[in-house]
């Protein structure tokens, strides 16, 4: 109980503390510092709740497999630029194993694949972006499975969410404050990429959701997950 109260105080107190620290250390670029600290901090509650929840070893291994699949997918499809199955696999994992598993798959895929594609200040943002796409998919899991319209809408939206978060970072980092013209401009320049993301999410989800879902269902029933 004491531990839990301490944790809540930590989470509640950390945000203002981070904002103060960022503006104190780097008055010129405080927004960029604060945003990167906040985005790292935003991932922590998801990790903690996954860490505290009881999960079977089989589920752990399957999450690891799904993470590895999304990273490997980023490699396998590297001949086609921006056309990646990562988001689709993250969504599938979230739909079948819950939002936290989805968040974990998304954020770990970002870190691990960046070992090969290059880490950078964008890594925390990618972690958060893919993670939150997975988490929301976990919340919507029933609708995504039952109604095709929702699935199509969400897969298109997930590309937009991802791009939006990344554009936000670009703007904050380069100007040090929220420059609306630059944000709109970077949204506009990344629009074709966003469209490719969304379309590729849709295509991969349409192709993969049923077969992979069937396999996951089978494993779930066969081995009682």
């Amino acid at each position: 109980m004491l531990k839990r109260t301490f944790r809540y105080i930590l989470i509640l107190g950390a945000v203002p503390a981070l904002i103060l620290l960022g503006s104190f250390l780097f008055p010129e670029k405080s927004y960029a510092v604060i945003s990167i600290l906040l985005v790292i901090f935003a991932c922590i509650p998801f990790f903690i709740s996954f860490e505290n929840r009881k999960t079977s070893v089989r589920t752990l291994v399957i999450i690891a497999i799904m993470t590895a699949l999304s990273v490997a997918g980023r490699f396998i499809f590297s001949p086609i630029p921006f056309f990646k199955p990562v988001t689709a696999i993250v969504i599938i994992t979230a739909v079948y194993f819950g939002g936290e598993a989805g968040f974990l798959t998304g954020s770990l895929s970002a870190v691990i694949s960046n070992f090969y594609f290059g880490q950078g200040p964008w890594t925390p943002f990618q972690m958060f972006a893919w993670g939150i796409v997975g988490f929301i998919a976990g919340l919507l899991s029933n609708q995504i499975l039952r109604r095709k319209v929702i699935m199509i809408i969400y897969s298109l939206a997930s590309g937009v969410i991802y791009s939006f978060i990344m554009d936000l970072w670009t703007t904050l980092w380069s100007d040090g404050y929220f420059n609306l013209t630059r944000f709109l401009a970077s949204c506009a320049t990344s629009a074709p990429i966003t469209i490719i993301y969304s379309v590729s999410n849709l295509i991969f989800l349409l192709i993969l959701l049923k077969p992979i879902g069937k396999k996951l269902d089978r494993v779930k029933i066969k081995y009682g997950l």
Partner: peptide, 17 residues
């Protein structure tokens, strides 16, 4: 737990490829 998933995923990737 998360580190375990992390290291297992690292091990699976080359196998997949």
């Amino acid at each position: 737990k998360i580190s375990l998933i992390f290291s297992m995923a690292l091990h699976f990737i080359p196998n997949f490829s």
